[in-house]
Amino acid sequence: MRTNKAVELMLKASAILVVMVLIFIFSFIFFKSLPFITDNQLSSLFVDDGWYPTTNNFNLFPIIVGSISIMVVPLLLSAPLGILLALFCRYYAPKSLAKVYIALIELLSGIPSVVYGLWGVLVLVPWIGQYAPPGASLLAGWIIIAIMILPLMVICVDNQLALVPKKWLSGAQALSITRWGTIWKIVLPSCISNISSGLILQTGRALGETMAVLMVCGNIVQIPTSMFDPIRTLTANIALEMSYATEMHVSVLFMSGLILLLMTSILMSLAYAFKRQPVE
């Protein structure tokens, strides 16, 4: 194939640039956490007496548990709802309504997380506090995150539904197959793996979410025993402590960044494993 040298050079340069940035970030975080890795045993992250960074007690385990719990439950809440909403939009709602609806959902996904956090602090937390003080809790985090990722879920599912070949749908129409029959036997089986893949990727957002979680979860380092307990996540921990951390403390914060990166990579590989080539 003939190519234009200048264009090719530009494309290659930008491709290399992105890879360089990625390598730079990875190695930066790694080298910054190296003092902790070499000085202490990694197991101290799990066996230390607690998270008291000023006295070199670095038990991150409760915080990791916090991060995982803030991610899993919202996924379970918003994934089914997201699938149902997207199905409604595409197959049940009148076209004009569906258009408006999708536009609204896209708008919803554009709201900055601090705004959700503000609503959480001023409305949700006091409301939960009435029933189970203090209010700032795992539950508050779940609700906020579930609301935040719901529009992303709907958009992601809708994108996959749009890829279902039209000829299957017209085939089903010509046979007068019921709407639910079409969805259940033709549409969903053909795209459920890609939907799962997309949903897992969106879950990565819940893991990385900082501001809203910081505002509504109470930030107490503990393994929650009920959903009304306050918790702290890895992201909130970094945001809260980076301003005054010194020496080893800094290195541990970078270490927690590395753990976040690792968790995201696991999610990505899961998503990749679910992904299927569309069949034609």
Partner: peptide, 12 residues
């Protein structure tokens, strides 16, 4: 019954 231009068996 209707049969289309390009074969469209369902993915099952």
């Amino acid at each position: 019954g209707m049969v289309f231009q390009s074969p469209n068996p369902f993915p099952m």
